[in-house]
């Protein structure tokens, strides 16, 4: 389906992105397009820069070169002539409200109930009325199958339930783009399925997503595009049938033979 669409602007455009951590050159020129409504799965060995790449998309990580745009707008910077000026924090925060981020370790707020976790951002970042935000939050909880857990504290839930709450929390801002950083890697094996099911539902409803994961089965089933990264570069990308079943690069083959 990738070549058929005549979509003028991709939802996410990553152009020549570089990132260093001190002497470590973690991203070495990443180019990637994500079209609206598509699911992009990023695979790659640990340390290859997957998380860092994902974090540049909502400016949790500043780039040292290149640009990231979402909906045609630069993330974190304003262009003027040939210069990029970093935006004020307030403007960056506003951009982030349109991008949902789900962390490997959930990062739910432990001192707040499930409901409070979810309504926090709509109320304080989008200035929604608390009553409306709570009603919306309860619907989201219903959607992730946790309608009865609104008053619970995160630590009273299983890992899978916590991650579903984290997804609901990200959805509460009604973002046009969702980023998942290994959403099931911290879970016991029997809890992985319930989280992947929620993500599959979202994919089916047409949400644009970038998912970093080691779940090859999930990638095969849900991804429109699979991206394989190694040592800060995209080694190959394409539909799952190509990248997963007929990889062209030796490094992709070596990686797949290890995780499959």
């Amino acid at each position: 389906m990738s070549s058929v669409t005549a979509d003028p602007k991709p939802k996410v455009e990553i152009r020549g992105v570089h990132k260093n951590f001190g002497p470590l050159h973690v991203l070495r020129g990443i180019d990637l397009d994500v079209r609206a409504g598509e699911v992009t799965v990023v695979l790659g060995p640990s340390g290859s820069g997957k998380s860092t790449l994902l974090r540049t998309v909502n400016h949790l990580e500043k780039v040292d070169g290149g640009t990231v745009s979402v909906d045609g707008t630069l993330v974190g910077y304003r262009r003027s002539g040939n210069k990029l000026y970093e935006l004020r924090e307030r403007e960056i925060l506003k951009q982030r409200t349109r991008i949902g981020f789900v962390f490997q370790n959930f990062h739910l707020f432990p001192h707040l109930t499930v409901l409070e976790n979810i309504v926090e951002a709509p109320v304080s970042a989008l200035k929604r009325r608390r009553k409306d935000a709570e009603a919306a939050a309860r619907q989201l909880l219903d959607r992730v199958g946790l309608a009865d857990k609104a008053e619970a504290y995160p630590k009273q839930l299983s890992g899978g339930q916590q991650q579903r709450v984290a997804i609901a929390r990200a959805l509460a801002l009604e973002p046009g783009l969702l980023l998942f950083d290994e959403p099931t890697s911290a879970l016991d094996p029997e809890l992985v399925g319930e989280v992947l099911d929620v993500i599959k539902d979202l994919a089916a409803s047409g949400t644009t997503m970038i998912v970093v994961t080691h779940e090859i089965g999930f990638a095969r089933e849900v991804a429109d595009t699979v991206v394989f990264m190694d040592e800060g570069r995209i080694v190959e990308q394409g539909p799952p049938a190509e990248v997963l079943d007929a990889p062209r690069h030796e490094r992709t083959r070596a990686f797949l033979s290890k995780v499959l």
């Binding site: 909502n58 949790l60 962390f103 370790n105 304080s124 989008l126 801002l173």
Partner: peptide, 20 residues
């Protein structure tokens, strides 16, 4: 990670401090 979660939800500096 708590601060990053709050930042990625668009919470302002003051709110992050007082609420999270």
């Amino acid at each position: 990670g708590q601060i990053e979660a709050a930042e990625s939800l668009g919470l302002g500096r003051r709110r992050r401090l007082s609420r999270i």
